[in-house]
């Protein structure tokens, strides 16, 4: 199995945030209520961390198929808010391979290069 991982790039407009709120049940007003969000330190709505993290899940699934769903591990830290309209790139860099498992440094970064999520993903690549 190849250890190459192709990046995922996606714009996250408010419409997608609203759809995610409905699909996940997370209607925290910081994500969907511009009037409320304007009163917070963020000054406006922010994207659900789990919506941004989903790009990493998508990226790993696209590269490793069911192996990701059955053996994957992901540890991520939400470092900074993602704003509506940001274009986010999820990417992975192979850190090491050992005992049939590949470990990646993963991240999500906005169009300005700001890293909003960083972490580590591990998947078994050979039996």
């Amino acid at each position: 199995m190849s250890t190459e991982v192709a990046s995922v790039i996606r714009q996250l407009p408010q419409s997608r945030i609203n759809a995610y709120a409905d699909a996940s049940g997370d209607h925290n007003p910081i994500h969907i209520d511009p009037v409320f969000a304007a009163t917070t330190p963020f000054g406006g709505t922010i994207v659900h961390g789990m919506l941004v993290l989903a790009l990493i899940g998508e990226m790993m699934r696209a590269s490793f198929g069911e192996a990701w769903s059955t053996t994957g591990k992901l540890k991520a830290r939400f470092k900074a808010p993602t704003r509506p309209g940001d274009t986010v790139t999820a990417s992975a860099s192979l850190s090491r391979e050992k005992d049939g498992a590949a470990e990646y440094a993963v991240q999500c970064a906005t169009q300005t290069g700001e890293v909003v999520i960083e972490g580590r993903a591990t998947v078994v690549v050979s039996a």
Binding site: A19, Y20, D22, S24, M50, G57, E58
Partner: peptide, 27 residues
């Protein structure tokens, strides 16, 4: 609905993407 919302076009068949399970479990 979850896959449409996040924009994930991978084929999961009848299975639940792990992060979907976590997001909906948190709910």
């Amino acid at each position: 609905a979850y896959l449409d919302a996040v924009g994930d076009t991978n084929d999961y068949g009848n299975t639940i993407p792990p992060l979907a399970a976590v997001a909906l479990g948190l709910d």
